[in-house]
Write a protein that binds this DNA or RNA. Structure first.
Lengths: 164, 164
DNA sequence: GTCTATAATTTGATAGAC
DNA sequence: GTCTATCAAATTATAGAC
């Protein structure tokens, strides 16, 4: 699953194959099928694991200000980029959502809905939801720019103004 | 090229094949190879055409304010989304830039460099470049969110606050 | 849990006729 | 410019032995 995640984040859903994963682990592709019946089911499992890790990382802090919440999200995205220089898993999959399996498409939409709902609540106020959309778009887009530029500075420049 | 562009914007580089394109046009895949020697060369040609169309659409207006320039970019992204509900070509490809051909990777980076340079100049002032990065990230991320949500409202919410 | 073996399909690409 | 024919490789997936 670690390898599958790395491949998806680097090259999208089509960027990993059971054979490649198996070879890198040192087993055969049939053995991978023993754990995940289909490619779509494995991608969905990887997505669920990524989602759980992500929401654990952005968990609400005590006595948190709206600016703190946004900074927490930004730091989580930045850490993912800093560790391995790769895109957000859901950012990659979201871009090709049009042709993925229904199970996976639902997983993607559900991730972003949960991000927006969580951020909106923690930001509060009248324009909270619009600001939540803005924050998520900027962070995802910033990761994409950093991926294209191969430089984390692109992310930092894009996301700097999110907090006042 | 129209069909190739549609497929890439919906599903990424791996989302189109010469056979599929040929079948949709009513010819054979060998005939497509007559026009484009390789898949990478065709994708690069599609990217160049998209780039030229994009920069024509965001051309500088006379007596333009910084807010006007940003609004022009936002309108161009929104129009692409509104017409066919698909991602920005370079947004999709940028997310999977890690495994594309060098020719294509260079085309992607060059597109974003040109966007940032153009926007920076039209915005002006001390923090112009950072604001240009911010605008591009928000627009690309907003398209991705709209793609995942299958709703243009996600884009509008994300990009509303870009202009004052 | 892992293997061998294999099926069925798709893919990118080429040679050469018309 | 388009075709037929074909290749070599890769892909997803399954059956059944160990």
């Amino acid at each position: 699953m670690d390898l599958a995640e790395a491949h998806i984040r680097k090259a999208g859903y089509g960027g990993f194959s059971f054979r490649d994963l198996a070879a890198e682990v040192g087993i055969k592709s049939a053995s991978v099928h023993h754990h995940f019946p289909t490619k779509a089911s494995m991608a969905a499992a990887v997505a669920r694991r990524y989602r759980d890790r992500f929401f654990a990382a952005v968990a609400r802090q005590p006595n948190e200000s709206p600016e703190d919440a946004i900074a927490t999200y930004r730091a989580a995205f930045r850490a993912a980029l800093d560790q391995d220089g790769r895109m957000c898993l859901f950012g990659v999959l979201g871009a090709e959502a049009g042709v993925l399996s229904p199970e996976l498409a639902e997983e993607i939409q559900s991730f972003f809905r949960r991000c927006i709902a969580d951020l909106s609540q923690r930001i509060g106020g009248p324009a909270a939801e619009a600001r939540a959309f803005h924050v998520m778009a900027t962070l995802e887009g910033g990761m994409m720019l950093a991926s294209a530029y191969r430089s984390i500075e692109a992310f930092d420049q894009a996301a700097a103004s999110l907090t006042t």
